[in-house]
């Protein structure tokens, strides 16, 4: 009897975890397994799989120069937009972390793009960055700079996309950094002042190290989010001009649903999954050292 109730007590936590695990299994783990299965088979009809083809989908993917180009562009997008948005978010948070009048309003203003629907942001951005009389080119014209073709130019398109993504995300990072800053122990910062540390030194030796958990959290969220960038690309450029703004998720989408290469799309998705996992592992390792 006694042993049985002990066993029950030991099993109880797992019992409570079961519903969540079931949902995750149905909608996350099983699809990943199914994806792996798909990537190893030729396309079939409907939900059924074609014959086993081994790793040939991966071979096809890795031998395609466009894949490598798009991989590079995805990395460029991620490793430009994430640090820039994080640095700007922290900068804004530092500016707003003081007893200002109308602080709530300012915070709401900076946060507004985050809650705006992506479709609206994309439409707005298309208008602002329109090379034919868009707002940005008009403003540049006022200070005597020739119009820039932004999203229709292969050189400018990706940077423009990065700017728009930064603008959309910076408010979110700002709010989290602000919460992090306000949770910092004021006495520690006071102690550093009395120890003779001037503002810039205080920021780099005290504030920034103490914000480490916040930076880690934002970094992980931002990395995952930007690797999965799809909607801006889909809404504004469809990967163009000539694949200049094509990224991994959009490429997978094109292969799967435009070119009906489901096996290739599955392989691509798995490669991306492994990549994100590896990068997050690296980030976690760096932060927990």
């Amino acid at each position: 009897m006694r042993l049985q109730s002990d066993r029950l007590a030991a099993a109880r936590p797992y019992l409570y975890l079961t519903p969540t695990l079931l949902v995750l299994a149905t909608f996350t783990y099983l699809p990943i397994a199914r994806l792996a299965e798909m990537s190893l088979h030729a396309p079939g009809t409907g939900a059924s799989l074609g014959p086993w083809i081994g790793l040939s989908a991966y071979q096809k993917l890795f031998s395609n120069p466009l894949f490598w180009r798009i991989l590079g562009q995805t990395f460029a997008y991620v490793f430009a937009s994430v640090p820039i948005a994080m640095a700007l978010g922290l900068g804004l948070a530092l500016l707003l972390d003081q007893p200002l009048r109308g602080l709530g309003l300012l915070r709401a203003l900076y946060y507004a793009p985050v809650v705006m629907p992506t479709v609206a942001v994309a439409a707005l951005a298309l208008w602002m960055f329109n090379p034919n009389g868009g707002l940005v080119d008009y403003l540049l014209h006022l200070v005597g700079i020739a119009p820039i073709p932004w999203l229709v130019d292969t050189t400018w398109a990706l940077p423009t996309l990065i700017v728009i993504a930064v603008w959309k995300n910076v408010g979110y990072y700002m709010v989290i950094y602000l919460a992090g800053l306000q949770a910092l122990p004021q006495a520690v910062l006071d102690a550093a002042r009395l120890d003779g540390a001037r503002p810039l030194v205080r920021f780099f030796t005290i504030t920034l190290p103490l914000l480490r958990p916040t930076t880690f959290f934002i970094g992980v969220v931002a990395l995952i989010g930007s690797f999965q960038v799809f909607d801006f690309v889909n809404l504004m450029t469809q990967g163009g001009p000539s694949n200049a703004t094509n990224v991994l998720v959009y490429f997978a989408y094109q292969n799967g649903f435009a070119y009906m290469q489901l096996g290739l799309a599955a392989a691509l998705s798995l490669v991306m999954f492994a990549l994100v996992l590896a990068i997050l592992g690296l980030v976690a390792w760096t932060f927990n050292r």
Partner: peptide, 17 residues
């Protein structure tokens, strides 16, 4: 405060964690 040559001991220690 940075230039006052004063040291302070705080109630909650305020060590650099």
């Amino acid at each position: 405060p940075e230039g006052r040559n004063i040291a302070m001991v705080f109630q909650d220690y305020a060590l650099y964690p």
